[in-house]
């Protein structure tokens, strides 16, 4: 391996001079070229950066769920009643359900683009563990869907006359809850990415699994309004996140393999 890059430029002369030696060198060099440069952290970091860049260049995909969230929230006072008292009682559930649907809406594109241009196959071929790379993609999805939704929710809360004192809990519970939603939803997205009309099926698969998160998320806001203290709900949301962080990456990886390999 003493052959430096400069000498490597003219391999033909080398090969003729000392055949066996350079053959082994060539072999070695191929192995080093095939090895991953850097370990798992580099790969995860690269996936994170790539997905963030891609999404930041397609801003509409980031903005659409937010617009959808605002629109759905606008529909309810029109459909039910503009009475602030009535709205205040249903606001926690409404905000949570609308945010959940907005997050669901964005799931279909989580792996779709990568599947269509073939980069998902490359992701499967990398020597790094697929669960971690999938986790990186989900993290980006949460960062650009769940987190903005959580930050936007208090504004819509004002419009629904959400009682004071629950705004911070609303944002925090949504931030915590949408992370679990992204993880669970990614399983469904990975299972349906190979199907041409996976959208409706995806919601059928994923929505029943969202129910615990919805119960404790909306419950946290409800508890904050009642003055009961939302710590217990938030703790359970955190527990759900821990559990899905632990298990979902494996299911995502297995589902991606199923969708790609046939």
């Amino acid at each position: 391996m003493s052959v430096s890059a400069g000498e490597g430029k003219m391999p033909s002369a080398d090969t003729r001079m000392n055949g066996s030696d350079s053959k082994r060198d060539n072999g070695d060099r191929q192995v080093t070229a095939g090895e991953p440069r850097g370990g798992l952290t580099v790969a995860v970091w690269a996936t994170l950066k790539r997905d963030l860049t891609l999404l930041m260049r397609r801003r509409s995909e980031v903005l659409n769920p937010l617009v959808f969230f605002a629109l759905v929230i606008t529909l309810f006072p029109i459909g039910i009643s503009p009475d602030p008292e009535l709205l205040a009682t249903i606001a926690p559930g409404l905000l949570w359900v609308a945010a959940l649907l907005a997050a669901l809406l964005s799931l279909d594109s989580l792996f779709r683009g990568d599947y269509e241009d073939g980069s998902l196959e490359q992701l499967l071929l990398t020597p790094q563990p697929l669960p971690m790379l999938g986790l990186a993609k989900v993290a980006v999805h949460w960062l650009l869907t769940g987190l903005p939704l959580a930050l936007m929710a208090p504004v819509l809360g004002i419009m629904l006359a959400l009682p004071a004192g629950s705004y911070l809990i609303l944002a925090f519970s949504l931030a915590l809850g949408t992370a679990s939603l992204s993880l669970i939803g990614a399983i469904g997205a990975a299972l349906t990415v190979g199907l041409s009309r996976g959208g409706v099926l995806l919601s059928l698969l994923v929505l029943p699994l969202y129910i615990p998160v919805l119960i404790f998320g909306a419950g946290a806001v409800q508890a904050a309004i009642m003055g009961d203290g939302a710590a217990a709900h938030l703790a359970i949301l955190g527990a759900l996140l821990a559990l899905s962080l632990m298990l979902a990456p494996w299911a995502i990886a297995a589902s991606l393999r199923i969708s790609i390999n046939g």
């Binding site: 399983i187 698969l205 029943p208 699994l209 299911a251 589902s255 199923i258 969708s259 390999n261």
Partner: peptide, 13 residues
């Protein structure tokens, strides 16, 4: 793939 996808979903469920 239908079998494997349904298996994964049943386990997740």
């Amino acid at each position: 793939s239908a079998s494997r996808a349904a298996s994964v979903l049943a386990m997740v469920g």
